[in-house]
Simulated scan of single mutants.
Amino acid sequence: MGVKNRIFKYYFPQKAVDLKQKRRGNCNGIVLMYHEVLEDSIDIPAWTIVKRSNFEWQMKYLRNNFDVVTMDEATKRVCGLSEGQRPFAVVTFDDGYKGNFNNVLPVMNKLSLPFVVYVATKAVSDSSIYWYDKIIGLLDKRDDLFISIEGDDIPIRKSHSNSKRWSLMQKALSKLKSMSASERDIEVKKILDENDARSFSSRIGMLSASDLGAMSKHQLVTIGNHTHGHELLDQISGLEIYNTINKANCLIESWTGIKPKHFAYPNGNYSENVLDALSAFGFSTLVTTKPGIWDGSRSLMEIPRLGIGRFETKSQFKARLAGFL
């Protein structure tokens, strides 16, 4: 954790937020990136899983300080086609987790706030979870975990703090993401076998096709494309890129009746070749995982997002939104 993160963990002045808002102007804004929101009682120490009570506080704070808008409205503001009273914020979710339906939708409906869910469709169609969630799900065991990847041992002890357990898990995930898909599959199976993953049931789950159909009918919800198999696009060919995005488009349209207009790069990975391949689909916006303010200088194919995770304190959340983290 950096120095500013440690300082802002305990205190960040609201006046700094107000000052930053005045300087931003009403045509600029931020895009927040979440993944999953689960009930407070489900205590999986993963950055990707935010507690519902924390999420609700964050959304109330966001509503009090920003114009929370759809991706379409944000695009209009950035392009000078619409104006607002305050800087805007867009709330987005990656992958398509069950909690987006069970927890996010009720909170956002109560607060009348729109949001985007970028769905990777394979897990929905297969009623499965992706390889990284199988590994992350091991944290739910609360046992010592023994992870060894190509000779690099990454022991995760039950005595470690939650944030330490996640830091070590991130190290393992980063090593796995750097591998080819075939190499990664072998390593993931080995890790799951060594940690007896079959002995417990993961509480991480994905949306169903019927969930997506119901959500798409809600005026606050936008469904976006996140590929079919959550492939890292800079690691595959142009034809493979086309096929995974086209398949996701077709499935989402079959489930919701709506063709996606918005796209999120899995893991934030992209390159010039990826941008070229994506141009054929005519998406209105493409979002990254790079932090920053979204303003008129940004390409609509490389929109920045602020990642929000489980371990944010209220002060850190305010500091991140103000651009200090």
Rank of each mutant, 00 (worst) to 15 (best):
I7W: 12
I7D: 11
F8P: 03
F8Y: 13
F8K: 00
F8D: 09
Y11N: 14
F12Y: 15
Q14C: 11
Q14G: 15
Q14N: 11
A16Y: 11
A16C: 12
D18Q: 13
L19Q: 09
L19N: 09
L19F: 03
K20I: 06
Q21K: 14
K22E: 12
R23Q: 13
R23F: 10
G25L: 02
G25T: 01
N26S: 10
N26K: 09
N26V: 14
C27Y: 01
C27G: 00
G29N: 02
I30S: 06
I30L: 14
H35W: 07
H35P: 04
H35L: 00
V37T: 11
L38G: 06
E39I: 12
E39F: 14
S41G: 10
S41N: 14
I42Y: 08
I42F: 08
D43I: 05
I44W: 03
I44K: 01
I44N: 06
P45M: 08
A46L: 01
W47E: 11
W47A: 13
T48C: 07
T48F: 01
V50M: 11
V50T: 15
K51G: 12
S53T: 15
N54G: 01
N54V: 08
N54L: 04
N54S: 11
E56W: 13
E56R: 14
W57V: 03
W57A: 05
Q58I: 09
Q58H: 10
Q58V: 07
Q58E: 13
Q58S: 05
K60G: 14
K60F: 10
Y61L: 14
R63L: 04
N64E: 14
V68M: 03
V69H: 07
M71Y: 05
D72C: 04
D72R: 10
D72F: 00
E73L: 04
A74F: 00
R77W: 06
R77C: 08
R77L: 10
V78G: 08
V78E: 07
G80K: 07
G80S: 08
G80A: 06
S82G: 06
S82T: 00
S82L: 02
G84Y: 02
Q85H: 09
Q85P: 09
Q85T: 12
R86I: 00
R86T: 02
P87E: 00
P87C: 02
F88D: 03
A89F: 15
V90F: 13
V90L: 14
V90W: 12
V90G: 15
V91K: 11
V91E: 15
F93Q: 03
F93S: 10
D94M: 02
D94A: 04
D94K: 00
D94F: 01
G96S: 08
Y97L: 14
K98Q: 05
K98S: 06
K98Y: 02
F101H: 14
F101C: 14
N102S: 02
N103P: 04
N103S: 12
V104N: 04
V107T: 13
V107A: 12
N109K: 12
K110V: 09
K110E: 13
L111T: 05
L111P: 00
S112T: 11
S112V: 02
S112R: 10
L113D: 04
P114Y: 01
F115K: 10
V116Q: 13
Y118G: 00
Y118W: 02
Y118Q: 01
V119R: 08
V119E: 03
A120M: 07
T121D: 07
T121I: 10
K122A: 04
K122S: 06
K122G: 04
A123P: 03
V124M: 01
